[in-house]
Nucleic acid binder design. Structure first.
Lengths: 327, 327
DNA sequence: ACGAACATCACAAACGTTTTCACAATTGAT
DNA sequence: ATCAATTGTGAAAACGTTTGTGATGTTCGT
């Protein structure tokens, strides 16, 4: 059926091993035969069978990517970045969605790990120990999560919160709310810490409102508590939560930013589609995906190099949902 | 390193072939040895090497999925459905994003086709002929596209437009605009046809406004033309376009639905997040993904069965962006 | 009690590569 | 002119499975 290496060998009048070398180790064969082999391979439309190659080399040429929820536009953006970089390196990408389910997460990693050379884990929900166990078996890179001795790429949370809080402080806000994401989310804990630091430095008081799912509905659910807290601004765990807040405020007739300012995190597309548009701290999503693959490919080439930790820049996007405090 | 079939064979005191049969053709081995083999395989944590298996069986256990743009929330939903159904059937999924690029689309299919048993093509932009050529080489299932002799799953466009137009007609609208999507989009052509039929049957006049990219920006760009066309309602090619229209209308101070009603297509999550929320025709996204995999698995089992064409039900979601005509 | 049919299993070949090893031919140094 | 080193190539083994064939022992009908 498909054209194999033997077909090429026969057509070019050489042995199979020469064909292999002509294609993968050009310096080992005579330039003349190399060109001839490559030529016939091209005309015959030969492509090496990756399964056969993988069998002997132990490499699949595939990467795995796990995300907690494709329904959050944040993750498709990351996926795009991963795809782009992976294809450049001639890797294909297995994608799996864990639906925010920790158990499913571990199972999927185990399953994937047999079929890929390495895995990019985006915003994993599992514990540090579980993570470390997996990292011992499989080359792993973490996105939005930091763990000793495992390569990771994370946004600059501290700077992000500094920008957010400075912006609100400059508008006169002195008492703000933070709607927290899932308790198991490392990113949430990190944001809280960064927020406290930034708020402390600026003399802004922070009220924390319960843990919600990192979704639109979570924001809707938290909105009334936020209003009851007597604050003049609120920062959502992420844009979806902030959009939920915005939606509920509008539905209740609370003017944004007239009566309360709303600030998000991520800068997903819908943030710019609503009215008022959402002020948010933009995280480099595609870039994070690309960086993740970069680190993974490095790890595959030099497995015992100390783990790299890459921190990505962030940028506050000032839009319509933040304004001066009510006077 | 990893535990192989020989390890299991040795531990169970049988030959490798017996191990294989105990696991894949249980009726061929004695129940006692079958159980013993399975038991030792389990305790040793044996999992067959898929590359090796693929080499001999010619099957990879992998599926490919191509989508035009992960940035449109419609597609992540489809991806979720595909994933879910594929994992049930013990298949893993290669995902690729073509970025609305026809050339990339063909290249990616060719590349993927070597590594998968079949491909789900979602809203492909290539021509019928190109599609047919590919379908001759690789098991293919089409989503949102119909083509003779190729299995496909499509929403019931005719019914969708009937529901949309009836809704608007009942609100008194007699002259409406349609903002068209990409000219190369089969779905766009199909929607136009269905819209004309529905409008003709209801006595509603339709104004078509240029072809735009199926994105938020496309809707924003078309909004002013729509207003200039002197219509009382507008249907967007999809929700993103409709959200763009909505956004621009709001920015210009045009009241929705007071002065103009807006209707979308798809029912993506952001449609319910904006204010006013977007009336739209919901397409079964996850279900479409699942159905696509269903058809693909059928095709793999019975390659020369006549191609199935599955039509999925749709549902108008009436929300805040449509209302009675201005009086 | 005898051969046919069957059940149960092991052996070996095959899948398409890569890689090790060895061999021949050529080159360079003495 | 001789030997060592180098270059270019082929044969064969290996990767971990599945599957065809055949061997052995058992069951059954007569």
């Amino acid at each position: 059926m498909a054209v194999t290496i033997k077909d090429v060998a026969r057509a070019a009048g050489v042995s199979a091993s020469t064909v292999t070398r002509a294609l993968t180790a050009p310096e080992l064969v005579h330039p003349a035969t190399r060109d001839r082999v490559r030529q016939t391979a091209a005309t015959l439309g030969y492509h090496p069978n990756r399964a056969a190659r993988g069998l002997i080399t132990g490499r699949t040429g595939n990467l795995g990517l796990l995300v907690p929820d494709l329904g959050n536009p944040f993750f498709p953006s990351v996926v795009k970045g991963v795809q782009a970089r992976a294809h450049e390196g001639d890797y294909a990408v297995f994608l799996a969605d864990t639906d925010e389910d920790t158990a499913a997460e571990i199972g999927l990693v185990r399953r994937l790990s047999k079929q890929v050379d390495g895995i990019v884990l985006c915003s994993p929900r599992m514990t540090d120990d579980e993570l470390r166990t997996l990292a011992a078996d499989t080359p792993l890179v973490l996105l939005n999560r930091r763990l000793a001795r495992v390569p990771s790429v994370i946004p600059d949370f501290a700077e992000a919160m500094r920008q957010a809080v400075s912006h609100l402080a400059a508008l006169g806000h002195r008492r703000i709310a933070y709607v927290a994401g899932p308790r198991v989310s490392w990113a949430n804990r990190e944001r809280v810490r960064a927020l406290r630091a930034a708020a402390g430095a600026t003399g802004v008081e922070v009220v924390e409102v319960g843990n919600v799912m990192p979704q639109f509905e979570g924001g809707v659910a938290a909105a009334d508590q936020v209003l009851a807290a007597g604050v003049t601004a609120v920062i959502g765990y992420n844009d979806l939560v902030a959009l939920g807040l915005l939606n509920r405020f509008t539905a209740r007739g609370v003017r944004v930013p007239g009566e309360i300012s709303v600030l998000g995190f991520d800068d997903i597309a819908p943030a710019a589609m609503v009215h008022p548009s959402l002020t948010t701290v933009a995280l480099p999503k595609e870039q994070a995906g690309r960086a993740g693959v970069d680190l993974l490919l490095q790890l595959l080439e030099q497995p015992d190099r100390p783990a790299v930790r890459r921190e990505l820049p962030v940028q506050l996007m000032v839009r319509g949902s933040t304004g001066p405090i009510p006077r």
